[in-house]
């Protein structure tokens, strides 16, 4: 049975229909039809021959629903995938898909919180230093992604954080 997806990369949308046909997949991307042969290799690793053009890809889910990381041609590409019809319904209902504004500041990598520069109630402006996370001997200044007010500071000076842990909550 053919499936219909909406894939978003860097805010560019791809309307993709996939159907299994004898020799591979018929993939229609924004109205253009391609024949793709796909070979599964170990775990997340696959080889695609897109109209005979060779691509090696590694597709990983990265925790959140619909979020994917694709390693391809020396690059890691962040993508989002959802059912096409569901995405259209959501859009019609005014619910935004992947690009929703995130005002929680998360640790971009595992490390040690060595300094916190704000407290709950502080007004911060975009680009302002919020806290400092040390990883691999480098001190990384974590900056405010947008203007706002600090709602909560779950991070504690001297504690280790994992990638994705919430450091500062901004409203």
């Amino acid at each position: 049975m053919p499936q219909h997806y909406l894939v978003t990369i860097d805010e560019q949308e791809f309307d993709i229909e996939v159907e299994f046909v004898g020799e591979g997949y018929r993939v229609t991307v924004n109205g253009n039809e391609h024949l793709v042969r796909r070979f599964d290799m170990e775990s997340v690793h696959s080889l695609m021959l897109v109209d005979h053009m060779s691509y090696e890809a590694f597709v990983r889910g990265n925790g959140e629903q619909g979020q994917r990381s694709v390693f391809m041609l020396g690059r890691e590409i962040d993508a989002h995938i959802e059912d096409y019809n569901l995405a259209q319904l959501k859009k019609a209902a005014g619910m935004s898909g992947p690009g929703a504004v995130d005002t929680t500041v998360k640790a971009p990598m595992p490390g040690l919180v060595i300094d916190i520069k704000v407290s709950p109630g502080d007004t911060v402006s975009k680009g302002q230093a919020l806290c400092i996370v040390e990883a691999m001997k480098m001190e990384n200044v974590i900056k405010a992604p947008a203007d706002g007010t600090v709602k909560a500071v779950p991070a504690k000076t001297g504690s280790s954080v994992e990638k994705g842990d919430v450091l500062i909550d901004i409203e």
Partner: peptide
Amino acid sequence: LDDETRRAAAMAVALDKF
């Protein structure tokens, strides 16, 4: 990313899910 790479990545994601 050039368009071709981006399109190939999108196809990889769709085929993986499929």
